[in-house]
Design a protein around this nucleic acid. Structure first.
Length: 157
DNA sequence: GCCAACGTTGGC
DNA sequence: GCCAACGTTGGC
């Protein structure tokens, strides 16, 4: 999941109440559908800093809720206001995201050099989605590059 | 600031 | 349903 660090960095996530933030403001149907259909509580999230001097993976997080209605779409004062949406027929959803840990920055250039990551959706030419799927293999490869255990130390197996 | 890529809009 | 125009994304 991409986030502009000027909006919400990995440090902001770590310092948020409950270390959890609502992923409000997604206004792209594909990204919305990933949250609605493919993401479930407990799923791992690679937290990616975008539109900044050092784009790349900055930490690990997890999905903390099912998708639910993004209230900002009804707020005319919000930058995420969507006049074509209505509470009776809401258009936009979001999940909550919970902090797991900060990592060293795995920057975009290094991601592109890793053979195991060449297929990552986020690295494909022209990709602009702020939320893209990560395969089990890609997740494991990222953890290996970062020299992190693939499971928490207190997790069996 | 540039620009390629892509999504959305709206006239027809 | 087509497609040109426009807006946005996001690395560089």
């Amino acid at each position: 999941m991409k986030s502009e660090p000027s909006e919400c960095s990995i440090d902001d996530l770590a310092q948020a109440p409950m270390q959890t933030v609502p992923w409000i403001g997604v206004r792209n149907y594909q990204a919305r559908n990933f949250m609605r259909d493919a993401m479930h509580p407990g799923d791992g999230v690679l937290f990616y800093h975008s539109s900044c001097p050092q784009p790349g993976i900055a930490g690990l997080a997890e999905v903390a809720s099912a998708a639910y209605v993004d209230a900002t779409q009804f707020n005319a004062q919000s930058p995420y206001f969507d006049p074509k949406s209505s509470p009776e027929n809401p258009r936009w959803l979001h999940v909550d995201v919970r902090f797991l840990r900060k990592t060293r920055l795995l920057n975009l250039a290094e991601m592109r050099t890793a053979p195991a990551l060449t297929g990552m959706r986020v690295l494909q030419a022209g990709n602009r989605l702020s939320i893209t799927p990560v395969t089990e293999e890609e997740w494991a490869a990222v953890l290996e590059i970062l020299q992190l255990p693939t499971a928490a130390p207190d997790t069996p197996g």
